[in-house]
Structures are given as structure tokens and as C-alpha cells.
Design a binder for these strands. Structure first.
Length: 271
DNA sequence: GACAACACTAGTTTTACGTCA
DNA sequence: CGTGACGTAAAACTAGTGTTG
């Protein structure tokens, strides 16, 4: 392949993101806000046509009609320090595993159930949302830092310590993981935006450089008569340079400045 | 392989609370 | 100061999926 091929007008510069992971769903591993985002993507610039018909599969979400359950477990938040604003959790605990696999919760449940909220008296069975105290939240956060998932034993212990139902601890961890993932996604999104801007700028610059090369080719057709051995090519970025590396003597020189600065490792910068 | 139990995620609903006009 | 509208965070929910025994 000669340089003439490169200068062929059929060339195009492309900008894109290549997935380095074939995972269907990205797992958030790194804590939020620490170092570079853990992305499975690498931005790339190509000298070829890029197909832009990337499709994103959107999983069809079935609209659910959710109804509050009728079997309410009402529990007072005995741990709450703000007694004036004491709240009750009457959320239904339907799941079998909370009943079956967590027999030891019955003590807590029983204690909690002693306090009957008064919303049933007026016929309203709207669920009340428990607001965790700062102490409870702090302890949950501490535990989450140690392990983002809990085994049944840990869940039990934590629930007992917080005077909450294991189900509540479980839900808290589920929501906490979801929030972490959401935050990480936002961080990744910002990171990708910056990458896109960088690569767009690089793409623009390379287009300009390509145009200049084409103009140079027209102006100096004798260049093509140079022996191929006089041209060297950077293996990493395929940048063409001369044997003597003396830009003043080389009939064909390309700017030696690093042409691509990005947060990613870029071999071109070493050129 | 079929099945049940369980853990988990994604998406949604609901509630509490802060802010502001 | 009281109040209602509004937005947001988060608790709690459901349905679906993957894993394991």
C-alpha cells in the first residue's frame, strides 16, 4: 500500500467508541468519584468510514399496575430519636423469604407490631415511609463501605443493631447500590462527553491535515518518486516521517507535535 | 432438563421534606 | 407567619432474570 492510497479521496476520518467489554450489563465496581471512571470503552479515531447506525436496544418495559398489598406489617420506628416526628412503617412484607428464612426477625417484628398506627382506624391504609435517623444512615453507610451486599447473617445482625426489619435493611442496600450505579453512570457520561469533545477536535484537526496533504501532493508530484525506504512510519500511529528525521531536509514532513491529547494512553504522544 | 428457592437488578410508586412564591 | 405548589431524595414496591441445589 502506497501513500497514494492514503491520499485517496475515498478515505474518511472516523470517530467512535469501541467497547472493550462484551458484558451485557456494566458492573459498577469502582467507588464513585475515585480516579478515572471504569469504562469499558475506548475512544478511537480511524481513517475509514464509520457506520453510524448504532442501535441501542431498549428493553421493553412492561407497565406495571402496582397496588399496595393488604397484609400490612406495621412497625414503629423505635430507633428514631425525633420522637415528635415518629413515623411508622406499614409497608407490606409479602416476600416469602422474609417470613420463611428469617425466623429470627419475629422478635423484632413482634416488638414493632405492638405499636399499631392509627391510619387503619380512619380506613386509610396508605403506607407510611420510614425515615432513617442519621445514626441509622451512618451505620448503614459504614456497612455499605465494607461490603455493598449483605449475606443473611450480616443482614440479620445489622437489622438487629438498627432495630429495623431485615427487609428494610435489604431494601436500603438495594437502593444504595442503585444510587451508586446511577452516580457512576453520570460520571461515566461526563467522561464520555469529554472524550467525545476531544476526539471531535482531533478529527477536525486530522481532516484539516489531510486536506493539506492532498494540496501538497498536487503541488509536489515528484514526492511520489521517492524510494519507499526513505519513509518511515510510526508503528503505533502510522505517522510518516523521513529517514534523517530532519524536517528541514525532508521533502515531506508532518508536524511532529503530539497530535492527540486525551486521558487515554496514546502512543502518538511518544512520536 | 425441570423445578423451586433465593438474591439481585431495573423500573416504578409513594412518601417525607425542603424551598419558594 | 402560614400555605400550597413543586421538586427531590429515598423507602418500598413489583416484575423479571440469574444462580444454585
Amino acid at each position: 500500500m502506497g501513500f497514494d492510497d492514503i491520499c485517496n479521496t475515498g478515505l474518511g476520518l472516523g470517530l467512535g467508541l469501541a467497547s472493550t467489554s462484551d458484558q451485557k450489563s456494566t458492573k459498577v465496581i469502582a467507588p464513585v468519584g475515585k480516579g478515572a471512571p471504569s469504562l469499558g470503552f475506548e475512544p478511537f479515531l480511524t481513517l475509514s468510514l464509520i457506520s453510524g447506525d448504532r442501535t441501542y436496544e431498549q428493553q421493553a418495559t412492561n407497565k406495571k399496575v402496582t397496588k399496595p398489598s393488604n397484609d400490612h406489617h406495621q412497625s414503629a420506628d423505635l430507633y428514631r430519636q425525633d420522637s415528635a416526628a415518629s413515623s411508622y412503617s406499614n409497608a407490606s412484607v409479602k416476600r416469602e423469604r422474609d417470613v420463611g428464612s428469617e425466623e429470627t426477625t419475629t422478635e423484632v417484628e413482634r416488638v414493632s407490631s405492638r405499636v399499631i398506627s392509627d391510619e387503619d382506624d380512619d380506613g386509610s391504609n396508605a403506607r407510611k415511609k420510614l425515615r432513617l435517623t442519621k445514626a441509622q444512615s451512618a451505620l448503614l453507610e459504614e456497612s455499605f463501605k465494607l461490603h455493598s451486599t449483605l449475606n443473611p447473617k450480616q443482614k440479620q445482625d445489622l437489622a438487629r443493631e438498627l432495630n429495623l426489619r431485615p427487609r428494610q435493611v435489604e431494601v436500603w442496600f438495594q437502593n444504595r447500590r442503585a444510587r451508586t450505579k446511577l452516580k457512576q453512570t453520570e460520571v461515566d457520561c461526563e467522561f464520555l462527553k469529554k472524550c467525545c469533545e476531544t476526539l471531535t477536535e482531533e478529527n477536525r484537526r486530522l481532516h484539516k491535515e489531510l486536506q493539506e496533504l492532498k494540496a501538497l501532493k498536487i503541488a509536489q508530484p515528484l514526492y511520489m518518486q521517492l524510494p519507499a525506504a526513505t519513509l518511515t512510519m510510526c508503528p503505533s500511529c502510522e505517522r510518516i516521517g523521513g529517514v534523517g528525521e530532519n524536517p528541514t531536509k525532508n521533502p515531506f514532513t508532518i508536524a511532529q507535535k503530539p497530535h492527540f491529547y486525551s486521558p487515554f494512553t496514546n502512543p502518538s504522544a511518544a512520536c
